[in-house]
Nucleic acid binder design. Structure first.
Lengths: 250, 250
DNA sequence: TTGAGAATTACTCGATCTGAGAACAACTTA
DNA sequence: TAAGTTGTTCTCAGATCGAGTAATTCTCAA
């Protein structure tokens, strides 16, 4: 039997029904706090619970494409704003009983976004919004989404150590203090301003100067700060050190 | 409509047929070279090509369970030997056209194993064996498995930096020189013996002394070496530094 | 039996990096 | 104008790293 004959006689429905979804752990920083995009489900299962934005993968789309589409649908974002969002695959979750409907494997993704507008209500009239990750209603998250969020947060904390992705939470131009704010928010630790400044400028390719400065000083005083944009490094070497790293590994 | 009614009326076959497979990038070290477990496919598609061990996930099993089962089936391993193998999820691959049969999403896993016996031929009479990763027949790997192997190798190199998983390539007791050999093999760089020794013993929880020594010196001379076993740390802090790290990020 | 070579382990030294603190100037609000 | 805040630079002690040296112990081969 050659390969073409084999494919012609192949019957996909002979295999048990499974489905693939993509879910997105979308993070942003609002008013100095880490926020997560959540949807309140309007339909069973888990009706009324908060859940990660996501849905079934279309037959013709890649996993990353599906995740970006779901993110766009929920945030109403498009074009350049959407393109600035960092999106990466997080992990897949496939416990047999994680969804009561059928066997569903979810390929979770992680997104870093600059401060985005509030999402608009979905066609299903689902409520949607950015919720602070502290004081999340863990018990109220649908499916195994609490676990996925935990994994996403740990991945985010870790990625800030050795990649320049912290800049993805900010606009195209930013100050070193704003960048430090991202690290402090995601890591949950205050950082030494002087040492952070020295470190960021000494790592090759992390940031590059725009030559400009802010129009005003800080809200409570201080001089105008110089402006920087993202450099061309994809990895930080040497990496930043996260203080008091916990003993956890996924 | 309550949740039970909803589930009763739910029709899984309404969704397009997709399938989930698990594939395993299983690595081991033989004669100082990194080896990868590969299967030569006995059936279309890609008949005659080398491929990663893997297969469809059973309806009642978890993704990690499926990966371990596939690994056991191909290596003929069981019990304690299998339990010593480190297995972690790598990433999922779901390009729409990656498999000519149907939409198949593969959840790839990564395994670190001590030197294992040669695999026995499968029931499908597929050939199987450990192949050195240098001089892999990249063009001859089935599906997108060359890409998966690349991702797995980079993950392995990276994991050796900040976790004690290098010990998983060795038996329960090992010398510092054997451990250094794992790093040199996976990273592809010779390491400074004295500095490596100092570093391994200074990182808390990496290794602990057994009190014993090897029976003989090295094959070409040298004193007997002290024996160590794996410590209880899950993360190495501070991490080991990989020399000449490339500018790549997944 | 002996000598050459190799490997384990320990030690040294200079360069670099880190954490902590201080200093100064520029800016805010009151 | 005074008081307080912040961006930026500098200093300094301690830790870490890369590279080299050395003592010792063993294997192999002459």
């Amino acid at each position: 039997m050659n390969e073409q004959d084999f494919l012609a006689g192949y019957d996909p429905s002979a295999y048990p029904a499974t489905a693939i979804t993509v879910d997105v752990v979308a993070l942003t920083i609002r008013e100095g706090a880490l926020h997560l995009l959540l949807i309140r489900r309007g339909q069973p299962p888990y009706q009324g619970h908060w859940a990660l934005p996501g849905g079934f993968v279309q037959p013709d789309e890649d996993l990353a494409t599906g995740a970006r589409r779901e993110l766009a649908e929920e945030t109403g974002l498009g074009g350049d704003r959407l393109r600035r969002v960092h999106l990466e695959q997080l992990a897949s979750y496939g416990a047999p009983d994680r969804d009561p409907r059928m066997r569903i494997v979810s390929v979770a993704h992680l997104a870093f976004a600059p401060d985005l507008p509030d999402p608009v209500a979905d066609s299903d009239a689902d409520e949607a919004g950015w919720l602070p990750v502290t004081a999340l209603p863990s018990r109220q998250l649908a499916f195994d989404h609490a676990r996925i969020v935990d994994d996403g947060l740990e991945r985010a904390r870790s990625k800030l150590e050795y990649t320049p992705l912290a800049t993805r939470f900010l606009g195209p131009e930013f100050t070193i203090a704003e960048l430090r704010g991202v690290y402090e928010t995601v890591w949950g630790h205050p950082l030494h301003a002087g040492n952070f400044h020295r470190k960021v400028l000494s790592v090759p390719g992390f940031v590059e100067s725009t030559g400009g400065s802010t129009e005003r000083g800080g809200a409570r005083g201080g001089p105008r700060a110089r402006l920087y944009r993202s450099g061309d490094a994809r990895l930080l070497h040497p990496a930043l050190l996260r203080p008091a790293r916990e003993e956890t590994v996924r």
